[in-house]
Design a protein around this nucleic acid. Structure first.
Lengths: 248, 248
DNA sequence: GAGTTAACTCGCACACTGTACGACTAAGCT
DNA sequence: AGCTTAGTCGTACAGTGTGCGAGTTAACTC
């Protein structure tokens, strides 16, 4: 009898050296014969539901299985492991980020930055995953291509191009990431709870570091959505100004 | 007999409403009587060893226990749960970041940024944790106080102060975070492996997106430590220039 | 139509996780 | 001496990611 073996596993034996399984992106979706089966898109859809609803911890292979009305380990036929599933998921949401074209480079950069930030707000679980593995999926690729083209049209080339682009992404990810976890923190505990938690800390701070204490009271505890908006606009403008003055 | 109960648990009963346990930082270390015991510092030391050696996944309570030559669950007497342990750990490494004083504001900001980045490089596991909960430990507090003072001396006040400071941290965390995971990625697989993994992707890219393909070949695959250094210097300079021109 | 083969699902098992619980030991106080 | 409390630890529970192999179904070949 022929032993059904996972195509995705590392192949050994036959005297050949151990061979790495290829990335999801070069490996085509399974050819479908046999009983109609789960689809990659179907699986990623369900995974996204769980991720968006409950964050990274909300996604477990078993819960994914039950959501798909299938066995806990059936997904493993279509996907090598959980990391790969997350790779698929993050590329899927990268489809939501757009780089406006047709305007000047600054409009393109701003649009890209805001679009990326909005995506992170919709899918806060992405923050942890950024840069985990190099993002190589079709949508990430498309975005990268577009943004490099926009910065290239602005005159940046070579390492300067890389530097300029990086400055924007790095800032956006840092800023949007901190906003995302701040919001996740707020929604868990009501604002009043948060204040009560902070209270003993603040009273001690009043004595030891009055400047910091008043900053926290006057700024942090009054931080609304508008303030976050202003903060992001400010930081982004700083970065873009710096780029403008360094543009070839 | 008196049932020994964890002091750290939420206290209920006696008709009083459920009460939240206070944060690690307001709760003193356990008074020591009885047999000489584990120490907070001792525990955090061991945790840091594991974290620095093998990253976030390297720290499990059981491994921590064996490293301390103690039972797997003994740590729970000194620390409410794993999250709290991580809070202690991250504050410990915050001791390593310094804000230079005595120079102009730009020197202070640069020094702070570089110091924070260096700390992240030494302890890449911090990246995921930043902003998880608001950082409230003594060292984080000290750093925050110092950096706010430096920016305050530069003329920033109120929300402008918050904006200016945030722009720097957000950029640094974004940039250092991406560098850290990039390095972690390189050290796992040898550089040659990485190239081989990317190869099928690149050949396809040559046809579909030649601009991007050549960028990857010419820039990404030649990225050395010096390049990362230059990239960070560039981005930071952009942010600081933007701040300078907006300084009151 | 019969038979073969490949695609796919799924139950079970393993090693591992965080942590609640309660029994136990040992030190200090009266 | 006896009591009280600080501190340790073995056990247990519910959950995790995933390897394995047996079972099921549909499309091919003859």
């Amino acid at each position: 009898m022929f032993k059904s073996r996972t195509l995705y596993e590392k192949r050994k034996g036959h005297g050949m050296a151990e061979e790495k399984a290829a990335s999801v992106w070069v490996r085509p979706e399974r050819a479908r014969r046999g009983r109609p089966a789960l689809t990659r898109t179907q699986i990623v859809d369900a995974a996204l539901d769980l991720l968006d609803a409950e964050g990274l911890d909300g996604l477990s292979m078993r819960r994914l299985g039950t959501r798909l009305n299938s066995g806990a380990t059936s997904v493993y036929w279509h996907v090598a492991n959980k990391d790969e599933l997350l790779e698929l998921a993050i590329d899927r949401v990268m489809a939501e980020v757009a780089v406006p074209s047709g305007g000047d480079w600054r409009a393109a950069a701003t649009g890209y930055a805001r679009s990326l930030r909005a995506m992170i707000h919709r899918h806060p679980w992405t923050v942890t995953l950024f840069g985990g593995r190099p993002m190589i999926g079709p949508n990430a690729t498309r975005v990268l291509d577009e943004v490099l083209a926009a910065f290239g049209a602005a005159g940046f080339t070579g390492f300067g191009l890389e530097y300029a682009w990086s400055a924007v992404v790095d800032y956006v990810i840092g800023a949007a990431g901190s906003e995302a976890s701040w919001q996740r923190n707020q929604e868990g505990t009501s604002s009043a709870d948060w204040v009560r938690d902070l209270h003993p800390y603040l009273t001690r701070l009043d004595a030891e570091r009055p400047g910091l204490a008043s900053h926290i009271r006057d700024i942090w505890m009054k931080e609304t959505g508008d303030v976050l908006e202003g903060r992001f606009a400010f930081g982004l403008a700083c970065v873009l100004d710096g780029l403008e003055s360094r543009r070839p």
